[in-house]
Amino acid sequence: MSVDKATVAKIASLARIKMGDEELERMVPELNGILDWVEQLGEVDCSGVEPMTAVIENHLRLRDDVVDAIPETAGGRREDVLANAPAAEHGFFGVPKVIE
């Protein structure tokens, strides 16, 4: 499978990366080079093989339902949460107006 410029434009839009014509043109052969190369995976007979889920034998641990149990993952730290925001106003994050 190979991609053309229109497909790259579509992917770039899906990934929210603005790309000009020139950049799109440049990406086409680069992506096709990589895609052609990964294509060889199709040779591998994977019938009956499960996709990898846990790389190392391990079980998903669940935590107890306790509010603010660990300080690093607790709420109640609005200043920290907003500290790096490009536009923080009245305790909110500001974004360009959205029309739903």
Binding site: G75, V81, L82
Partner: peptide
């Protein structure tokens, strides 16, 4: 209050 129940994870 807005963003007072937000962890770094959220």
């Amino acid at each position: 209050e807005p963003n007072t129940q937000v962890s770094l994870v959220d």
